[in-house]
Amino acid sequence: MPTIRLYRPADFDALYDVCVRTGDNGGDATGLYRDPRILPDIFTGPYLVLRPDLAFVLADDADRAVGYIIGAADTAAFVADFRRDWLPTVAARYPEGSGTGWDAERIEQLHHPEWMWHEELADYPAHLHIDLLPEAQGKGAGRALMGTYLAALRARGVRRVHLGMSAANTNAKAFYDRLGFHELYRSPNGTGLTLGRDTD
């Protein structure tokens, strides 16, 4: 029976693997990028290093990480910490302005983390990322992870949270709908959604 526990540094590589293996709208993103590590270097690593107290791991019976939920209680502060403390540790691996296609887009995100925050999110200051390997899905673990994370935010006095997702990920959208998330806005081209909910 999978269990939820706080992140430990020994989980780092396993959580990077989970991120890559779920990074293509829930499918394996290993072949999408010249260096697939770009995904967790944006969407996983900075949280494990900068906000480990809000990183929760779903572990199987062998204590192997098969999923996680991570995030930040104050997104604006996280963006500042990302630029100051995280970006210098990975920037040389992905030179600014390099790459083509999807690689170029991700490298741009890495070097300009301000895309994570804008004033329209002021009422939803926290954010999250949740990923589960296929074998861990459909068994209530995602709901349990979300409950754990929302409780941690409530304990910090945070009332609302948001997340970003691809509109093409219909399975994820259905999951978030069931958990009470609602659409805050949609990107101009319609490909990206931002959802939010209260932490209660």
Rank of each mutant, 00 (worst) to 15 (best):
H111P: 01
W115D: 12
D81H: 08
Y94A: 07
H118L: 05
L58P: 02
E105R: 15
D177M: 02
D81G: 14
G26E: 05
A62E: 14
R160A: 13
V18T: 01
H112K: 11
L132E: 07
D11P: 03
P2V: 09
G67S: 04
E120Q: 14
F175V: 06
A59Y: 04
G101I: 03
P113H: 09
G140R: 08
L163N: 04
D177E: 11
Y176H: 03
L50R: 10
W86Y: 12
R34D: 11
T148F: 00
L133M: 13
T44F: 02
G196L: 02
V66Y: 05
H111W: 07
G147H: 05
E108S: 15
Y185R: 11
L193G: 04
L163S: 07
G147A: 10
D63W: 01
P36V: 02
Y7G: 02
R159C: 10
P40T: 02
D17S: 12
F12Y: 05
L58G: 09
Y185G: 01
D200C: 12
A151Q: 14
D17L: 02
T75P: 08
E108I: 06
D103L: 07
L110V: 06
A136V: 08
E119D: 14
P2A: 10
G27L: 13
P46Q: 07
H182M: 07
D41E: 11
G138T: 06
M146A: 10
L6D: 10
I130Q: 11
W117I: 06
A168R: 09
V79D: 11
F181P: 00
R186P: 00
H118K: 07
A168L: 08
G31F: 09
T191K: 14
D35C: 01
P46N: 08
N171C: 05
T75E: 13
T75R: 10
R8I: 05
R154G: 14
Y7N: 03
R5Q: 01
G67D: 04
A92N: 04
R83I: 00
H129W: 02
G23Y: 00
L121V: 04
H118G: 11
A73R: 08
P95N: 08
N169V: 03
V158I: 15
L195C: 02
H118I: 01
R83N: 07
N171D: 15
A92R: 09
A122S: 13
T199M: 04
A141Q: 06
T75I: 10
A29W: 03
T30M: 02
I130G: 06
A91I: 03
D177Q: 06
R159G: 14
L87D: 05
D74V: 15
L6V: 12
D41C: 10
D61C: 09
